[in-house]
């Protein structure tokens, strides 16, 4: 201890210590700074890898119809500027790739998994700006939606095709508006901002994001609504009701009429 205190009192000690401290701080800074820059580089690398991967999937799975550069073709539209939301909707719900060339792309088990879909979306989004995939932070319909307002919006904007209870309905020549029951909030939102297939676009200004959340909340409320009045018969209105009345109801009445008029033995 005594030796140490003697050393401390020497004239040279302060400059030497300062020098050493500077070296330590400098090296540490260089080391940390280097780490920061390398991690940044990794992120952007990962992004471009994802785009590359998406491009590879696109070339393999989509380019035969949509063209090598997504410029579209005789049977498929251009994908430049459709945005990530459109890809996420079409591929995520299994509508694309098409199973056959019929009028309507149907919802089915997706061909690509989540990462592949995300990569495809990332690639198509780089072609030109378009609607982005709504994140979970944006889909706060439980908190921000207004069911009554959503119902009003749905009846004005959606009910004519998707049925007043959201059960879907027929369009022309084999096309149809699918049911919105059981559809994830993300896909409902994406369908509104991208206008898939025959559906028109409902942009963020014509129907604000808050209004869209209200519509989703209303749809979810209808979905979980319990039947109070007996069999709902698919909630599609007079078609099934008429069928049941004419076939079951009148059939039963005919049976009773036959019983009434048979002579008992």
């Amino acid at each position: 201890m005594r030796k140490l205190s003697r050393l401390r009192r020497r004239k040279i000690t302060a400059p030497v210590l300062l020098f050493l401290a500077l070296i330590v701080v400098g090296n540490a800074y260089a080391f940390i700074g280097a780490t920061v820059t390398t991690s940044g580089a990794t992120a952007s690398n990962a992004r471009s890898t994802m785009v590359d991967e998406g491009r590879q999937i696109f070339l393999r799975g989509c380019s035969s119809c949509h063209g090598l550069n997504a410029e579209g073709g005789g049977i498929a539209p251009a994908l430049i500027g459709v945005g990530a939301a459109s890809v996420d909707f079409q591929v995520g719900t299994g509508r694309m790739p098409l199973a056959d060339m019929s009028q309507q792309a149907m919802r089915k088990t997706p061909v690509y998994n989540e990462e592949e879909t995300a990569a495809l979306a990332e690639y198509v989004a780089t072609l030109a700006p378009g609607p982005a995939i709504p994140g979970a932070a944006q889909l706060t319909y439980e908190r921000d939606g207004n069911t009554a307002e959503g119902g009003e919006l749905f009846r004005t904007n959606c009910a004519m095709c998707h049925n007043a209870a959201g059960q879907g309905g027929a369009l022309t020549q084999g096309k149809y508006a699918p049911t919105v029951m059981g559809v994830e909030a993300k896909y409902i939102y994406e369908a509104m901002i991208t206008g898939p297939q025959a559906m028109p676009v409902f942009g963020e200004k014509a129907i604000t994001p808050a209004e869209k959340l209200s519509m989703i909340k209303w749809i979810k409320a209808v979905e979980s609504e319990k039947g109070l009045g007996g069999a709902s018969l698919g909630k599609v209105g007079p078609v099934t009701e008429g069928l049941v009345a004419w076939v079951l109801g009148i059939g039963l009445l005919i049976g009773i009429a036959v019983w009434l008029t048979t002579k008992s033995r």
Partner: peptide, 21 residues
């Protein structure tokens, strides 16, 4: 104005392929 909502609309609020009531 939009129905419901009663907001005025600008032409750029409607994308090609969009409808508004």
């Amino acid at each position: 104005v939009t129905d419901p909502g009663n907001r005025r609309l600008r032409p750029e609020d409607l994308e090609v392929g969009a409808v508004a009531h």
